[in-house]
Amino acid sequence: MNALRAPDVTARDAGPKAGLELGAYLDRIGWTGPRAATAETLRALHRAHLAALPFENLDAVVLGTAPSLALADVQEKLVSRRRGGYCYEHNTLFAAVLAAFGFRVTGLAARVRMGGGGTARPRTHMTLLVDVAGEAEPFLADVGFGAAAGLLEAIPLVAGREVAAGPRRNRLVREPHPGAPADLWVLQGLVGGEWRDQYAFTLEPFEAADYAVMNWHIATHPRSPFRRSLYLQRTTADGGHREIAGRTLTVTAPDGTTLERRELVEDAELLVLLRADFGIEPPEGTGLTGRG
């Protein structure tokens, strides 16, 4: 299977010239563990990334631009400027980090089902397949989904196996895909005692050029939800979750229980939450008026 072609990043050449400053990234996520390409390291890196780096679409909805997916630009934004990003940015950076650790990474694309009401959506979500030496199956890794029922840790690509990360539960199921040569893989999360689809994908490799097209569509198309409404999400190390969708703040406990839901009326309160609860330093000129 072809590895994701992150720009000029290999296990030997992972430094400033390649766009990845590994030491700065590890400082940003508070990583002090070993730099070994093991399943344990993969799970721990995944969890640390989610706890440190928030999900946000400020570039698209506030600044009206598509964020750059060049590795150096993603590093500068998420690490140096202490911003967040959405799936393409998070998983582009994480793929480069994993390659630097010695993992083999393949980029995939998924159709998001969460909140879709059964409507078929295009494949616009970036996720990762990670090969780990000595493990029988590759792992699904995804630090860019952001949702409360998404992956807290990478999980083996095995159908029907429930995987626990603290109180959070996920599993993968196989689903027949009419007319296709292979079944779909569907990621599910346990929400309120019910398994709910998060997204569906195949194992066809995707490249940086594919994500560039998806990124432009998601950030600029007038009907894209990421162009029309603000989305901020933060996962804590214990699996808790905070989200702002439009003007609604939702706080979720690690077990999925909703602790708080309320509307944010004033821009000033939203800006305070950006810094205090989501760890985001807003870009200069952020007005946040008229958002969804």
Rank of each mutant, 00 (worst) to 15 (best):
G15C: 02
I280M: 05
P178C: 11
L53K: 01
G240L: 09
G285N: 04
T252E: 05
T41Y: 01
L93D: 08
L129Q: 05
M114H: 14
N215H: 06
L184F: 10
G118H: 03
E260G: 01
A18R: 10
D267N: 14
G246L: 09
E269T: 12
R104D: 15
L230W: 07
G85R: 02
P122G: 12
R83Y: 09
R275D: 01
L4R: 00
G287L: 14
Q233F: 06
F278C: 11
Q188C: 08
L78G: 13
L22N: 09
L26S: 10
L288N: 04
V61R: 13
G150N: 00
N91I: 12
G134C: 08
D8K: 11
E153Q: 15
L58S: 01
K77P: 11
G285A: 03
A36Y: 00
F94R: 03
A44N: 11
D183I: 03
F94H: 05
L45S: 09
R169C: 13
R5V: 07
V191E: 14
D73G: 11
Q75I: 09
E153K: 07
G117D: 06
T10P: 03
L264N: 01
L20K: 04
E266F: 13
G189R: 02
T248P: 01
A6W: 06
V132K: 04
D210Q: 06
G115S: 08
A60P: 02
V173T: 13
A165E: 05
L50Q: 15
A253M: 03
V97P: 10
G146P: 04
L187I: 02
S80N: 14
P282H: 03
L230H: 08
E162Q: 12
A120G: 01
G107N: 09
D210V: 00
F226N: 05
W31A: 11
P205Y: 10
T41R: 05
R196G: 09
T10E: 02
T32A: 15
T65M: 11
M1N: 03
G116A: 15
Q75F: 12
Y231A: 13
V265Y: 00
E89F: 04
A133Q: 12
P167T: 14
A164V: 08
L152V: 07
L140Y: 01
E207L: 05
P282I: 00
